[in-house]
């Protein structure tokens, strides 16, 4: 595991009468180079079929050794629609207006576009696939994933991605309001890493 490629993330979502409001923070990197994203999100459900989310982002890039930091503001959009009982489609775009980091040479922030679908084969078994284009990289990434609820509240997950090749395997378990997810990732270049996540859902008590 490489410390320099650590990824940390925290988020909070609050449902209100006029939609859900969220706050989030992501950090990638280490002390001498880190990319931070602060997000303010708003999501709304329209009818039984469609959900739309919008997030305003403040991006902050800190570089050590007196190189200073740069920042930018952009936004991202997501859309999820339930087509049938079993099929859900999703689409997502980050930085669609192609904003740039405000440095002297107009360093571009990539545009990221994704769409995917989830198919619920049975009540306990879901398959998902997704295609992603990031304008910083050559080609596109394809992802596939499976989730199986083996016993009540115990989930087993596996997934793969192309370009770069990644395999993931994970489990999740829910106790009352807390859900704990653990996953292992095999990256073709960066090697193996471990991820741990905790979700508190007070609605689900």
């Amino acid at each position: 595991m490489q410390k320099a490629t650590a990824f940390k993330s925290a988020g909070l979502a609050v449902p209100t009468n006029f939609g859900a409001i969220g706050l989030s923070f992501n950090q990638f990197g280490y002390e001498n180079y880190n990319e931070n994203k602060f997000g303010l999100a708003y999501a709304k459900v329209f009818g039984p079929y469609i959900q739309i989310g919008l997030q305003l982002d403040y991006l902050l890039l800190n570089t050590g050794f007196d190189y200073g930091s740069q920042s930018a503001v952009t936004f991202e959009l997501g859309l999820q629609s339930r087509l049938t009982e079993k099929l859900t489609l999703g689409a997502y775009v980050f930085n669609p207006a192609h904003f740039k980091l405000n440095t002297f040479n107009d360093e571009p922030i990539p545009v990221v576009m994704r769409f995917g679908l989830a198919y619920r084969f049975t009540k306990t078994f879901v398959g998902e696939c997704e295609i992603e284009k990031n304008t910083d990289y050559e080609g596109v990434s394809l992802r596939g994933g499976l989730e199986y609820e083996a016993t009540k509240h115990f989930y087993i997950r596996a997934g793969a991605q192309t370009n770069p090749g990644i395999f993931t395997f994970g489990v999740g378990y829910r106790i009352s309001v807390v859900q704990i997810d653990v996953s292992a990732q095999m990256h073709q270049v960066l090697g193996q890493s471990l991820q741990i996540g905790m979700t508190f859902n007070f609605d689900r008590k």
Binding site: F46, G47, Y49, I50, L79, S81, L83, L89, A91, F115, I131, V140
Partner: peptide
């Protein structure tokens, strides 16, 4: 291509 409710038609292509 898919229709959502009576107002929206969405389509994705790759």
């Amino acid at each position: 291509n898919y229709k959502i409710g009576y107002k929206l038609v969405l389509s994705n292509k790759a």
